[in-house]
C-alpha cells in the first residue's frame, strides 16, 4: 500500500458542501424508493424514487444533480439497498427495468440545466414556474425514453427485428401505467420548490 505524504489536496469549502448534498440526495432517493403509494386510477403501486430525481435536479442544479444520481446508481450497484423496493447489485442495471436506473443522472442533469440554466445556480425559490414545468417534462421524457428502450433491449422484445412493436409493447408495460404517478410527483416537486420552509436551500 502506498501512502501519499507529498502534499494534501484539500477539498474546497463550497465543494465539500456540494459533495455532501449530492450524497445525501442520493440517499434520500434511496429512501424514497421504499415509499409507495396508490392512486385510484391505476392498479400499479408507485414508488417515490423519481421524486428524488426531480428534487435533485431542482435543488442541486445540473452538475451536482447529475453527480448525485450517478452516485445513487453506483451505490446501488455496489450493494447499498437503494433501488426500488430496497434492491441492489450490478445485475439490476442489466435487468429489463435497468433502463430507468441509467436514465436518472441524465434526467436530473437535464432538469437542472433547464431550471437553472448553465451558469450559476438560481436560488430554488426564484426559478420561474415555466422553467420548472419545462424541466420536469423533459426529465420525464428522458426517463421514459431510457426506460422503454431499456425494457425492449434488456427484456429481449426483438428490438432490432421489429422496433415499432417492441417499443410500443414496452411502453404499454413500463411507461403508460406510470404517467398519473409521474404527474403527481412533478406537482409535488413544484410545491417543494415553492415551499417557504425551504427558502434558504
Amino acid at each position: 500500500m502506498s501512502t501519499d505524504t507529498e502534499s494534501v489536496a484539500l477539498v474546497g469549502d463550497e465543494t465539500v458542501e456540494n459533495v455532501v448534498r449530492a450524497a445525501l440526495f442520493a440517499a434520500l432517493t434511496g429512501v424514497f424508493s421504499y415509499v409507495s403509494f396508490q392512486l385510484p386510477v391505476s392498479p400499479v403501486p408507485y414508488t417515490l424514487q423519481v421524486l428524488g430525481v426531480f428534487l435533485a435536479g431542482v435543488f442541486l442544479g445540473p452538475r451536482w444533480g447529475f453527480a448525485s444520481l450517478a452516485l445513487y446508481v453506483v451505490a446501488g450497484a455496489v450493494g447499498a439497498p437503494v433501488y426500488a423496493y430496497g434492491a441492489s447489485g450490478v445485475g439490476q442495471l442489466f435487468s429489463p427495468w435497468g433502463g430507468y436506473l441509467w436514465s436518472y443522472p441524465f434526467a436530473a442533469g437535464l432538469l437542472g440545466s433547464v431550471a437553472h440554466g448553465t451558469g450559476a445556480r438560481t436560488p430554488t425559490g426564484e426559478v420561474p414556474l415555466w422553467r420548472l414545468a419545462a424541466g420536469l417534462t423533459a426529465a420525464t421524457a428522458v426517463i421514459y425514453a431510457f426506460g422503454t428502450v431499456g425494457y425492449a433491449y434488456f427484456g429481449d422484445l426483438a428490438l432490432f427485428a421489429d422496433p415499432v412493436r417492441a417499443l410500443v409493447s414496452a411502453a404499454l408495460v413500463t411507461a403508460v401505467p406510470f404517467v398519473p404517478g409521474e404527474l403527481l410527483k412533478a406537482v409535488v416537486a413544484v410545491l417543494a420548490a415553492r415551499s417557504e420552509r425551504l427558502r434558504d436551500a
Binding site: 465539500v16 458542501e17 455532501v20 448534498r21 445525501l24 440526495f25 434520500l28 429512501v31 424514497f32 415509499v35 403509494f37 392512486l39 417515490l48 421524486l51 428534487l55 435543488f59 403527481l184 410527483k185 406537482v187 409535488v188 416537486a189 410545491l191 417543494a192 415551499s195 420552509r197 425551504l198 436551500a201
Partner: peptide, 25 residues
C-alpha cells in the same frame, strides 16, 4: 389529499436532509 400528503412528506424530508448535510459539511 394525496398531493398535499406527499408534498408535506417531501418538504419535511428535504428540511431534514439539508440540516444533516449542513452539519456534516
Amino acid at each position: 389529499r394525496v398531493d398535499r400528503r406527499l408534498a408535506h412528506l417531501a418538504v419535511g424530508a428535504l428540511e431534514r436532509t439539508f440540516r444533516r448535510a449542513d452539519a456534516l459539511a
